[in-house]
Design a protein around this nucleic acid. Sequence first.
DNA 1: CATGGGGAAATTGTATACACATATCCTATA
DNA 2: TATAGGATATGTGTATACAATTTCCCCATG
Lengths: 225, 225
Amino acid sequence: MFIGMPNRTESRNAKLNLRNRVFQSLEQDILNGKYPSGTNLTEKDLCEEFGVSRTPLREALCQLELEGLVECIPNKGAVVLGISEQDVNDIYTIKLTLDGLAARLAAERITPEELTDLEETVNLTEFYVNKDDINKVLELDSRFHDIICRAGKNRPLRSMMSNFHNFLKMARHKSLNNPGRPTLMLEEHRKLLAAIASGDAELASHLAVDHTNRVFHNLQRLSDV
Amino acid sequence: MFIGMPNRTESRNAKLNLRNRVFQSLEQDILNGKYPSGTNLTEKDLCEEFGVSRTPLREALCQLELEGLVECIPNKGAVVLGISEQDVNDIYTIKLTLDGLAARLAAERITPEELTDLEETVNLTEFYVNKDDINKVLELDSRFHDIICRAGKNRPLRSMMSNFHNFLKMARHKSLNNPGRPTLMLEEHRKLLAAIASGDAELASHLAVDHTNRVFHNLQRLSDV
DNA sequence: CATGGGGAAATTGTATACACATATCCTATA
DNA sequence: TATAGGATATGTGTATACAATTTCCCCATG
């Protein structure tokens, strides 16, 4: 299991080479459950599926291995590890702490432009919450938190959080399926925005931790059903 | 810049294939300053240096790129990014928070065996502090903190912290060069150990944060000289 | 019928060859 | 002399070929 500071967040040259295409596709396929944990991936099959040769495919697998999503067993193949429920819990435990840090930094360092961005994102979220468009809301949730991390001016932290968000995509989706959760989420975002705008680092940190706690709690509530 | 949860920490099969050899060598070379930031790495030269073909070398470069230590520019080459001073500061900011979390978890979950391990590590540290063997002390410092992370039973957290320690190796070495620092470090380790042993999570967290704060502070003091 | 051995098939590890893009440098011309 | 243009060289992106190892199946033997 691997949570790093990947260079992906702001890869200026969105390289459209085969390796990156395959890497991103495979990563999403694993995170979305297309390849459950334990699945055996053979290079030959994947080559045919993606229509590429073994070279770029293997390079993508190497990256997935470093990320901890697959394990390459010598002379055997790559087996999918994926994100276990334990991993989700563990990552949320970490995220609880770091969300507080990110919010605190943002409250101290946010620029007017970033604040405007944040406000517009929240307003747009409200629009899509009212339209019940869960996918759009999820995307805007990612954007909201990414702007906060960007405002914190701590590049490794932003990368890590972006990674977390990516890894927890399925979990966040589940959490949002709690009845009434989107509306509450929006409300929490508004409060957090206000705290950051006012420069109250302690309040922002506290609100962010509470927010993540609720996301996590809603997730576990659904798991019990 | 990339801080992840790499699968390396407890890679059960210590794969001795060329890719991993090259990856680890190159990573250490970059972290140790052999290849400063901005260095242009050409595959051909690296192939000759390591005596391998381009295939495993490229795979290693892909992993270094994901880690954020190099940037692969299409049709141009790989340029070393390394760990900047800003990165060190940013990572310590994150580490401050997570060290607290790790200590808290350890205080709650440590097993008797792990506690014994921790005690022995501290005793051994004392031995080498008295012998002024900085490298051994550094190694035992890594071990001390890794046991704490292991005791926390949070695999992603342990991986991340291991990554941090790796990335900050040079910085930690500098910090330890402060006169009298090793002795103080040992004292702080003993106090933290006692707090964890007594199961006092709050105290352990507090002590761990203080500890990291001092490491960081000593580092900056030396940078100013 | 169970078990052990041998060989073929499959799969990864590595090396090399080819394709393509880019930078460089030399030359020709204004 | 300065500049434009093209040939060449360098280096990465991709594909394929070869080597080594493992797995699995089948057959022979106890």
